[in-house]
Design a protein around this nucleic acid. Structure first.
Lengths: 294, 294
DNA sequence: ACAATAGTGTCTTTTAGACAGTATTAA
DNA sequence: TTAATACTGTCTAAAAGACACTATTGT
């Protein structure tokens, strides 16, 4: 059936004569928060190394934000989806393919890019330290992994006639080649009729664009999902001990967990192997792998 | 400090001479899944009316997809964020303002709009039946509320060398002025190294563009959040009974709940009032309102 | 021997599920 | 009186939190 529109055109005829209007269009970038977990140097030969949560940043070589650190990313091409663009950037930046990738949020504040109208469709990637090794031969001029810390600083609640406004301030600290920091405020406006959340960058030291917001968004998503999905297992190497897995949960949540309860909880996310750690300076530990079934 | 780039320009100079490149840019639309809950007619004077979950669709008056039903939405202007665009569309379509609004996902499949390169930044809005009343005087030519049903049809698991692929098919049925239906498949690819999810429209009867996917995404978000947030309360009028609230949870989850457990669970999301239902043909019920604190 | 981690057992507390029983209204 | 919903109490089962105890290694 070929329906005619008010000009008497079929759909095919309409599409043939269609020309994109002259109205302005935004550029759309795919920006990525790439997480990994690395080992800190151990204090003593007996002690286990501590885990660190790290993200990849790239020092900007041109204006705007020359010299500041930005998330890896780039503009989406007409021949690809935002997800494909993110995967492409990931490959270009880290040489890594086939990893966990999840869309986070699309940021579109006006003026977020001083050059022109640019939206950022942001993604989170999780890669494990195994894959990180390969990345030795990357050509990214000034890319570097930064240790992440994200802590609540302040909480404030202001009552209104019709509800209240709650402001939570978080401090984001990134330690690596330089020390970067930012304060991001999450404002929760609760009214009888509606609820809305807004993120704002309160202060920013060394990060480009609104990337502090994007990083905060990624950490919150990661923290939220860790407790009810197997997402954290994408940060683990092929074989790992349950203690290592617990350390990863702890570094993500920034909170200590009880061993027995933790093991019960992850029991059906992992499968045991017959391998053990060796030469650890203490009792060997069974190695596990991610369980696919279930 | 004014850093110079490799061409010896300060940031201000750079921005002054900057001109957006000639590369192609996408149009970005903000499309909305607007949910509300309405009462079905009661069978008997004693019986409570059943609740229905409904979304707003608009019949397309021009190509492409002439005559098909589409989500309310429109292109984002350079002077607004995607969220502002969504709020503007919502106001235009329903006359309603100040409601719960949440960004869902940005869809960017190539060819999703046959006219040109268009991404859709999708939003979910929840409005209560109180506000719906006002909407009488809307001028939307062919807008109509459709009852939503979304049920799993089939589950299939295919083992691979390196993991498995699980396909879940859901049937989306929309009943209103017409009967629309679509089957959306969620494909979960689980490999040792990565996990990814993909949505695909298997069949589609009466919906425009990839909107079946967007609606499926919205329902899944709504279902996911109902159990651990107070999101469902945004679908309730100012005053409501706990049974009504339970009906709303049930119609969202498409699942019956036990009364005692339900009441315990929502106990600290609501505040009791001194009002009661009247003339119900049975024992009156206490009316509650959404609790803002906590 | 000992310093460290590995791993398990069990008690308590909290939360969820199940179901039955009593209460109250309009017609 | 009756057909309906309103509301509460209590038992059980499952999950989470807390902590203590035993086990095993390399130096």
């Amino acid at each position: 059936m070929d329906w005619l529109d008010r000009n008497g055109l079929t759909e095919r005829e309409f599409l043939e004569q269609y020309r994109a209007g002259d109205y302005e269009r935004p550029s759309v970038a795919a920006d990525m928060v790439i997480f990994t977990v690395t080992d800190e140097e151990a204090d003593s030969y007996r002690r286990l190394p501590e885990k660190e949560l790290r993200i990849l940043l790239i020092r900007r070589g041109g204006h705007p934000f020359l010299g500041k650190w930005a998330l890896p990313g780039g503009f989406v091409q007409p021949s690809e989806t935002t997800e494909q663009a993110a995967a492409r950037e990931l490959r270009e930046e880290t040489g890594v393919d086939d990893v966990y990738l999840e869309q986070l949020y699309t940021f579109s504040d006006i003026g977020r890019d001083p050059r022109t109208w640019v939206m950022s469709c942001s993604y989170m990637a999780l890669i494990n330290s195994d894959k990180l090794e390969l990345q030795a031969g990357d050509d990214a001029a000034d890319a570097s992994w930064f240790k992440v810390s994200y802590r609540q600083l302040r909480e404030q609640k202001e009552l209104m006639e019709d509800g209240y406004v709650k402001t939570l301030e978080y401090e984001l600290k990134l330690s690596g080649e330089e020390e970067l920091s930012a304060v991001v405020a999450r404002t929760l406006t609760v009214k009888t009729t509606s609820t809305s959340t807004e993120y704002k960058i309160v202060s920013n030291n060394g990060l480009a664009f609104d990337h502090a917001k994007i990083i905060a968004c990624a950490i919150e998503r990661l923290r939220g999902k860790v407790n009810y999905t197997d997402i954290a297992l994408h940060l683990m190497p092929k074989l790992f001990t349950l203690t290592e897995l617990q350390q990863v949960y702890e570094v993500i949540m920034d909170k200590e967990l009880l061993k027995a309860a933790f093991r019960r909880k992850v029991a059906d996310l992992v499968a045991e192997t017959d391998h053990y750690t060796e030469n650890a300076g203490h009792r060997p530990s069974r190695l596990y792998r991610r369980k696919l079934e279930e």
